[in-house]
Amino acid sequence: METKSKITNVSKTVKSDNWGKLEDLNFDYHFNNGTSKRLSFEMYGKSDGIAVLLYNPKTDKVVLSKQFRAPVYNHGIQNGFLIEVVGGAIDENESPEKAAIRETEEEVGYKIKSVQKVSTVFLSPGIVNEKVHLFIGEYSENDNHKNGGGVSAEDEEIEILEVDFLEAFKMIETQEIIDARTIMLLQYVQLNKMMR
């Protein structure tokens, strides 16, 4: 049976629409054994997002951020503070690339001209509706405009970290870096031998 015809009678019910939207996706699922069943799945999300790893091949450094994340705090890990790449939501009518460049300046203060697409991923496809577009962006010291630190109107307070690539990569092993987007992008740079 084709995947498309396995799912019929689709409907959605919005349960909450605050910062993000929580909704039920309801449908009839037709199993390979010939039976069918009405299923309902909760989905949560806001808009699609971006993640950007800034790297400098001349200095072998990367730019990361450190900020408070309530779910990390809820798990009792690192007092809720997570080391991660630049990340954020794509605004309405904004391309992922433009969002990546905008978020880079807002969060870490680097005004870069372009980014290179790595992939598009779902980080928790069982419940989270968000697609995340992964990028890398080359930077130099001339790109640092000394602003950054997040958008105060969005209650962001971001510490900017510039660290040696090898040190950042070791932080995966020590579990100082536990953010999936950050791990994937650091591994991408390592696998492609973009840093010494």
Rank of each mutant, 00 (worst) to 15 (best):
M1Q: 10
K6P: 00
N9I: 01
V10A: 07
V10P: 04
V10F: 05
K12I: 12
S16R: 15
D17R: 10
D17F: 09
G20W: 11
N26G: 04
F27A: 14
N33M: 07
T35G: 07
K37G: 08
R38W: 01
M43I: 13
G45T: 09
K46E: 14
D48E: 01
G49D: 04
L54E: 10
Y55G: 03
P57I: 12
P57A: 11
P57N: 12
L64S: 04
Q67A: 13
R69C: 08
A70Y: 13
P71Y: 03
V72S: 06
V72N: 04
Y73C: 08
Y73A: 15
N74A: 14
N74C: 05
Q78D: 15
N79R: 02
L82V: 15
I83M: 02
A89W: 07
I90H: 00
E94T: 09
S95V: 01
T104G: 05
T104R: 06
T104Y: 07
E106T: 11
E106L: 13
V115S: 02
S119K: 13
S124F: 12
K131I: 06
K131E: 08
H133C: 00
H133F: 07
H145I: 15
K146I: 10
G150A: 09
V151H: 01
S152I: 14
E154G: 10
E154W: 15
D155Y: 09
F165G: 07
E167C: 08
K170N: 14
I172N: 03
I172R: 04
E173G: 13
T174C: 07
E176M: 09
E176C: 03
I178V: 12
D179G: 13
D179C: 13
D179L: 09
M184C: 05
L185A: 04
L186P: 03
V189W: 05
L191W: 07
K193A: 00
M194Q: 00
